[in-house]
Amino acid sequence: MIPSAFDYAAPATVAEALGLLAAAGDDVKLLAGGQSLIPVMKLRLADPAMVIDLGRIGELSGVRDDGDALTIGAMTPHHQIATDPLIAAHVPLLAKAAATVADPQVRHRGTFGGALVHADPAGDLPAPVLAAEATFILAGPDGERRVAAADFFQGYFTTAVDDGEILTHIRVPKYTGWGAHYEKFTRVAQQWSIVAVAAMVRVEGGTIAEARIGLTNMASTPLRATAVEQALAGAPLTRETIAAASAHAAEGTDPASDLNGDAAYRRHLAEVLTKRAVIAAAGL
């Protein structure tokens, strides 16, 4: 478990990091919490010539209130996402999802931005961020650009972040007053999601006014369960309507088959877990 030799730099600012990145050429990796990158390097599945550590860049960490949205630094660790009062008040879905990631050690080192750029289909943060319609703020040699969550996740471990760019912040609209739940299905307590469902619902009286549903590990990227969202919008808040709407959860999905279950099982789980997630989010 020894990685290949590499050069290392720990810049103090995003500008400095961008300079190093530009100078380093192709064979470079950014290091955030290291919880995905370092295992991969130790197994020699990656052997970058240079590693640029973002850990000393203070401006990349923390949660800020920006009026109708929260701006979250890419280097904010999972533990902080799970416990931050602003997130608890305005996007509790993120806190609930972050709390299911791995164990306390990993949650203290692993970062929000790192998990999103890593874009593991089984990762727990992409689907909630997609459901929350967040915006990704990327810094690059030509300045800043913004990418909508719907365009960010492009494939298996692939995102819109280009070579030479750094994800600096994630802007998440506020969902104050919405009910939220992250239903994660695993075989053992500390495991990546076999399937998970991120649900947010706004209930008005006895009706579900709006719903946002994100699916984890149902394709090479996180997915929105749009058919479920549409079926729920305006529906009476009952277990029966939720169950009926959830029957659409697997539509448009393309899950993988592996030791934890084949695609048919995952499609079935998506329906069951969507039902459970929405019921829990709605507080039924």
Partner: peptide, 16 residues
């Protein structure tokens, strides 16, 4: 060996 790491070879821990 497909279960070549503890990601796939599932050893339960106390919470299980």
């Amino acid at each position: 060996l497909v279960t070549g790491s503890f990601v796939d070879y599932l050893v339960p821990s106390a919470p299980d």
